[in-house]
């Protein structure tokens, strides 16, 4: 066993200090130490995207980030995007457009989609498909996921314009 190191993370706006072995993966620290179980472990081999979180403005697969690498970073998970009383536009869009069936991939899908729309607020359908290509879904066939992301983009753009 290697030495533990002091890790400081900001997770969903809250400072977290913990001792961890550097080899621990970010997904394990989130789920098992911080009890943040929204990001899921699907393949654990950086293919499926179920563990996607936002780290300093980047969508990352938290199964392929050592907690030591993330030391000092700001992390947002699905838990950090809204409250149960006031869902995020993307969460409403997924509900409205049936963008999920079993729901296992959904936290990763929505977390990724938020960053995608941050980088590209008005994507085409092709850009949504390309930008979501790191997230796998075994239920929906993707049609309704793409529809949900496009609908959320339209709604978010309209809200931005109304605010200006």
């Amino acid at each position: 066993m290697s030495k533990k190191m002091q890790i400081t993370l900001t997770v969903n706006g809250e400072a977290q200090d913990l001792l961890a072995e550097p080899r621990e993966l970010l997904i394990h620290v989130l789920r098992e130490r911080l009890n943040i179980t929204g990001p899921h472990i699907g393949c654990e081999t950086s293919h499926c995207g179920a563990c996607t979180v936002t780290m300093d403005g980047k969508s990352v697969k938290s199964c392929t980030v050592f907690v030591a690498q993330a030391n000092g970073a700001s992390i947002t998970t699905i838990e950090g995007i809204s409250t149960p009383d006031s869902l995020h536009v993307l969460q409403n869009a997924f509900r409205e457009h049936h963008g999920l069936q079993c729901g296992f991939c959904t936290p990763g899908m929505i977390t990724r989609a938020i960053q995608l729309l941050e980088d590209n607020p008005n994507p085409t359908e092709e850009e949504v498909r390309f930008g979501m290509a790191g997230n796998l879904c075994r239920c929906t066939g993707y049609q309704n996921i793409v529809k949900s992301v496009l609908a959320a983009a339209t709604e978010m753009s309209a809200a931005r314009e109304a605010a200006e």
């Binding site: 950086s46 996607t52 980047k58 990352v60 697969k61 392929t64 980030v65 990724r112 979501m132 790191g134």
Partner: peptide, 9 residues
Amino acid sequence: IADPQVRYM
């Protein structure tokens, strides 16, 4: 190359 998440890293 790879997918969006991998390309960020």
